[in-house]
């Protein structure tokens, strides 16, 4: 095993453990914090693979903005300290989701594993290449996505501004 293999395995492990704990923990806010760990693990894996810009933007956008927003929303609701037992899923739902998750993992693994080489290779993607791809080759999908997000944003604003019937 090369050093890159070890580093990739370590960051991947962090991501998987963080993800599993984010799903299984009984504390709502802990779930958001484990999500941070999982995202940092994914960012680390991307760094090992040489996609520096993507990794950093992942941290900047997801940890810096999305998780902050999630925590903000959780603080506005009742997010008690200690385990939240009211919203416990029953054993059937737990077993069903576990089976579904395992099935997806096996499916993805069986598709992706034959494609992988023997050792982790560093791609060394420069920011210029990423920019060229996004704003050259893929510029229309990219702009369409931006437009979609904008429409969603405006629609959310419009929905929240619909005058309600006077409350009794």
């Amino acid at each position: 095993m090369t050093a890159l293999d070890t580093a990739f395995a370590a960051t991947g492990l962090v991501a998987v453990v963080g993800g599993v704990l984010a799903v299984t923990t009984r504390h709502v806010v802990h779930a958001a914090l484990w999500l941070v760990v999982a995202l940092l693990g994914v960012a680390g894996s991307l760094l090992v693979l040489g996609a520096e810009l993507v990794a950093l933007v992942l941290v900047l956008v997801y940890v810096g903005a999305v998780v902050v927003l999630v925590l903000f929303a959780l603080m506005l609701t009742r997010a008690p300290i200690g385990p939240d037992l009211e919203h416990r899923a029953g054993p059937w739902r737990t077993a069903g989701s576990a089976a579904l998750g395992a099935a997806v993992a096996v499916l993805l693994g069986s598709v992706l594993l034959p494609l992988s080489g023997s050792a982790v290779e560093r791609a060394g993607v420069t920011s210029t290449q990423v920019a060229g791809q996004i704003f050259g080759t893929w510029v229309w999908p990219f702009e369409l996505l931006s437009l979609l997000l904008l429409v969603a944003l405006v629609a959310a604003l419009a929905v929240s501004r619909i005058p309600r019937e006077a409350a009794p």
């Binding site: 950093l56 933007v57 940890v63 810096g64 998780v67 902050v68 925590l71 603080m75």
Partner: peptide, 27 residues
């Protein structure tokens, strides 16, 4: 590193989480 500006901004945005954790966990 080639992306040090993004690294600096990403790092400072992670630091903000500390305040939120403190605010929620203090009970």
């Amino acid at each position: 590193v080639p992306g040090s500006l993004v690294l600096a901004l990403a790092a400072t945005s992670v630091g903000a989480l500390g305040t939120l954790m403190a605010g929620w966990a203090s009970a």
